[in-house]
């Protein structure tokens, strides 16, 4: 009986509805909507601060204020690792970390935040986490001039490695996308996980060397050192610092760590997200 319906449908050119397209077609279709992702990121970024006087400037101000608070606490009050380049070290860490945590939380919420759109229009759902990451990337790009000024102010020379900085940011963007894709499906599957977002972000903040240099902490436990070295966020921060700060180095090892994590998360994230395509907006 099922076969006859299949045949009958096929004979008249009917296709099944409510099944996800093949991965290749899916990505192609999403690529065709790239303008949508881009416009949505622009508009939602603007609307997020629409009711404030400073508007989009908040996306620059908040990470800056955060850097100042951490600078005050860890640089001045605790003063444990005070070194001449602590300020650019910290600002690089906070600004880039803001992008990672933003991609994580905005990605996780990108499905539930757009329920109205999901319930009425069919489009490849992947454009929602993509647009969430693009919005975070725009925020990051907005803070970069400050980062450059801070780096220059503490060390009046520009390193040759600075040429690699755009590559670090490009790779970081793809890493953020991978994180967002996995987070967005996880929170759809298990809604409780959305409650853990701030918690996970906090842990990641503490273990990624945002405000301290693990090499100067004097940890000699090989397991902790190894785990730290394999932490992709720390790898990204180290790469960015290496291109900006005189005393830091860009190492091949960190490129490998950052690159591998990005590749794995992006491929895994895309497939994982796609496999639940027909479920988004079900509730």
């Amino acid at each position: 009986m099922a076969d006859t319906i299949d045949e009958y449908a096929g004979e008249h050119g009917l296709r099944r509805i409510g099944t996800r397209p093949r991965l290749g077609n899916y990505i192609a279709e999403a690529w065709r909507r790239r303008e949508f992702s881009w416009t949505m990121a622009l508009l939602s970024r603007r609307s997020r601060h629409a009711r404030t006087r400073l508007g989009v400037w908040w996306s620059v101000l908040l990470p800056l204020l955060q850097s100042m608070v951490y600078g005050l606490i860890f640089g001045v009050l605790l003063g444990s690792h005070r070194s001449p380049d602590f300020i650019p070290f910290l600002v690089t860490g906070v600004f880039l970390f803001t992008f990672v945590s933003g991609s994580f939380s905005a990605g996780a919420l990108s499905i539930s935040a757009n329920a109205g759109l999901l319930r009425s229009i069919n489009f490849p759902r992947i454009v929602l986490p993509v647009s969430a990451v693009v919005e975070q990337l725009l925020n990051l790009l907005g803070t970069l001039p400050i980062l450059f000024v801070v780096a220059l102010a503490f060390d009046l020379s520009v390193k040759v490695e600075f040429l690699l900085f755009p590559l670090v940011i490009a790779l970081l963007a793809l890493f953020g996308l991978g994180v967002a894709l996995i987070a967005s499906r996880l929170t759809v599957d298990v809604r409780d996980l959305s409650k853990l977002i701030p918690f996970v972000t906090r842990i990641l903040f503490y273990v990624s060397g945002v405000f301290y240099n693990p090499e100067r902490l004097g940890i000699d436990n090989p397991i902790i050192v190894g785990a730290m070295e394999l932490n992709p966020v720390y790898a990204f921060l180290s790469l960015a610092r290496g291109t900006l700060i005189a005393g830091s180095e860009v190492t091949i090892f960190h490129w490998i760590v950052a690159g591998s994590w990005t590749l794995v998360l992006l491929v895994l994230g895309t497939v994982y997200f796609w496999r639940a395509e027909e479920r988004y907006g079900n509730d």
């Binding site: 303008e35 949508f36 416009t39 508009l43 329920a115 109205g116 229009i121 489009f123």
Partner: peptide, 23 residues
């Protein structure tokens, strides 16, 4: 009948995005 597409965006922006979601 249902909720707004994107509640915080203006009608015009909703038209833009809604149309672009349609392709």
């Amino acid at each position: 009948v249902g909720a707004a597409l994107m509640p915080n965006l203006s009608g015009e922006q909703n038209i833009m995005l809604g149309g672009m979601a349609l392709g």
